[in-house]
């Protein structure tokens, strides 16, 4: 079911006339079906805006986005995509379990308590099912948001700095457990982050953006096993160095 994600000449400006501010410069990208790709760049460069355009939450100023032959709006309408937000966006009156179940409900899929429990287990929150978001730490909330996004079985998964508040150790563990999950499902995944380490660990391809307006300055493939395994740590270091060079 999954498909290539194509961005052709996509740009974004806020305001109009001479006072307009360009947030995203015209951009052409093709993300292969089932791949996991990182968008990295300095804070505030516009990569989150790009992600929101892919999700259909923000109209494009120019250009076109297609997932297979569907627009983001069409994809949204059949619950084909899911997004995990930077601020988690959990509903405070629902328990962790309720928030994860909400992802399934919003995607109009039948209840599946066992699958929800498994997802909660995967993001390392087993035992906290009945807690309210206010009782969870920032990192735990972000992990809950990822579980909620996965619960809807999306074909396109959009993650907006999902690990910003997650501690380094958990982040590593999550990387080794989550990436196989969405890879096995064949989910096309876009991950916005400003962490080079994270991008390399989780993704097969890293696209580097300049400061505002966002413009692609590098597009680097990460060799297989560099990210997830300890094998080839040296290669990994090389990729990272290349990335840092591109961002400088």
């Amino acid at each position: 079911m999954t498909a290539d994600l194509r961005l052709s000449g996509v740009s974004k400006s806020f305001g109009s006339g001479p006072g307009a501010v360009q947030a995203v410069a015209p951009c052409d990208l093709t993300i292969a079906a089932g791949s996991t790709v990182a968008l990295v760049g300095p804070s505030g460069c516009g990569k989150s805006t790009l992600l929101r355009m892919v999700a259909g939450l923000e109209p494009v100023s120019a250009g076109q986005i297609l997932f297979g032959d569907e627009t983001p709006d069409a994809l949204r309408r059949r619950a084909g995509l899911a997004m995990a937000f930077q601020d988690a966006g959990l509903l405070p009156w629902r328990s962790l379990r309720g928030n994860v179940a909400l992802g399934r409900r919003l995607a109009r899929r039948p209840r599946d308590a066992a699958a929800d429990a498994a997802l909660i287990q995967t993001v390392g929150l087993a035992g906290f099912e009945n807690r309210r978001p206010a009782e969870l730490s920032g990192g735990m909330r972000q992990r809950a948001a990822i579980a909620r996004a996965l619960a809807g079985m999306p074909e396109l998964l959009l993650l907006d700095e999902p690990f910003a508040a997650v501690d380094e150790l958990t982040r590593e563990r999550l990387g080794t457990e989550l990436a196989p999950l969405w890879e096995a499902r064949g989910t096309t995944t876009l991950l916005v982050t400003h962490s080079v380490t994270e991008a390399v660990r989780l993704c097969s391809r890293v696209i580097v953006f300049s400061a505002r307006p966002a413009r692609v300055v590098a597009d680097i493939a990460v060799p297989a096993h560099v990210g997830t395994g300890s094998v080839g740590a040296g290669k990994s270091e090389a990729v990272r160095a290349a990335l840092r060079g591109a961002m400088a």
Binding site: R52, A55, G56, L57, D73, L75, R76, R77, R78, A79, L81, A82, M83, F85, G89, L106, A107, G152, L158
Partner: peptide
């Protein structure tokens, strides 16, 4: 945004 991202 959450609700909209599911097309609801």
């Amino acid at each position: 945004d959450l609700i909209r991202s599911y097309g609801r």
